[in-house]
């Protein structure tokens, strides 16, 4: 046996050698094809992600402000950042916005998707109606909601007046400005999540559902033990995209409140934008960008941990 093994390479006949060569050739051509197919994505990522990230990190250690001169300042931008009241407010508001908007929009989307997964009349209409906000420009949405929240003639105060409530300055009142934006954020994000959940729900095994029903499981038990576990990977996908989306909220706030009153609705991306392009503090804004990247990474990491815990359960 051992002799045979030792001899094999030296006495390999051309007939035996050919398939090995062919297979290596095949592997090489597959690798080449792989790189070729990856090239556009790599190129895109290189130019639009990796290079800007490297620049942002490098700039965060400088005092660059579009002028003729700049210098390295080490971690000064970071230390100033943590003492900056605007940044602290933006950080807290962004986390609060995400912590409220993500779970609420996921829960509402799932509930609506469950409803749209039933055989009801006008299904096509409802599916379209819930998706419309997603394909509508945020500026248009913000303009409509500005009218809804208008203290004088808006729908929100008009509706509340039916129940005898006094008119509220929704976006000017420090207590209601951020919650008002959260409502719009939740509403705007429903469409995409509903579509994803709907697709996932249609992939849940009907056999398992029927078996559970035959075993006498209630609707809730079927949801908790069959539907919910089947949605695991989709939940994670929705969570990650929601985290990225909510942490990067900008246009909605920019159009509706511009971060005010005071800093009540200031969020990180708006603060970065203002620091970089209005106050011309690009080095400082880059440090803030790095913090935002880390924050998103931490939240995605937490999401992964939660998902793992859910799977292990």
């Amino acid at each position: 046996m051992s002799a045979t093994l030792e001899r094999t390479p030296t006495v390999a006949s051309p007939r035996r050698d050919a398939p090995a060569k062919d297979s290596r050739k095949l592997v090489r051509s597959q690798v080449r094809a792989g790189w070729l197919l990856l090239a556009p994505a790599l190129l895109h990522s290189g130019i639009f992600l990796v290079i800007p990230i490297i620049f942002a990190v490098a700039l965060s250690f400088t005092d660059y402000s579009f002028g003729d001169s700049w210098s390295w300042v080490g971690f000064e931008n970071y230390s100033v950042l943590f003492g900056d009241a605007n940044f602290r407010a933006a950080f807290a508001n962004t986390v609060l916005y995400a912590v409220v908007v993500i779970p609420v929009s996921m829960a509402v989307s799932l509930a609506i998707a469950l409803g749209l997964n039933q055989k009801i009349r006008g299904l096509g209409f409802f599916r379209t109606a819930f998706y419309v906000p997603t394909v509508t420009a945020t500026v248009a949405i913000a303009t409509i909601w500005l009218w809804i929240y208008n203290p004088g003639s808006g729908l929100a105060n008009g509706f509340l007046s039916l129940f005898g409530f006094a008119p509220n300055q929704w976006l000017s009142n420090p207590d209601t400005a951020l919650p008002s934006l959260m409502v719009v954020g939740i509403w705007q994000g429903l469409g995409t999540k509903i579509i994803i959940y709907l697709a996932a729900l249609q992939g849940v095994s009907r056999d398992l559902q029927e078996s559970a029903a035959l075993d006498g499981a209630s609707r809730w038990q079927r949801f908790a033990n069959v539907t919910w576990p089947a949605l695991g990977p989709v939940q994670f996908f929705v969570l990650v995209t929601s985290i990225v989306g909510t942490f990067q909220v900008f246009d909605l706030v920019y159009v509706m409140t511009d971060g005010g009153p005071g800093t009540e609705t200031m969020v990180l991306v708006l603060d970065i934008y203002q620091n970089a392009f209005q106050d011309l503090r690009l080095g400082f804004a880059s440090a803030e960008t790095v913090i935002l990247m880390l924050l998103i990474a931490v939240f995605i990491g937490l999401g992964r941990l939660l998902q793992k815990a859910d799977v292990n359960d």
Binding site: N86, G262, D279
Partner: peptide
């Protein structure tokens, strides 16, 4: 001034609103 006028506005507003 150009760097701080946005913050000037924000902080004045916070003072005006009693924050």
């Amino acid at each position: 001034w150009l760097e701080m006028r946005g913050n000037f506005d924000t902080q004045l507003t916070q003072a005006v609103l009693g924050q």
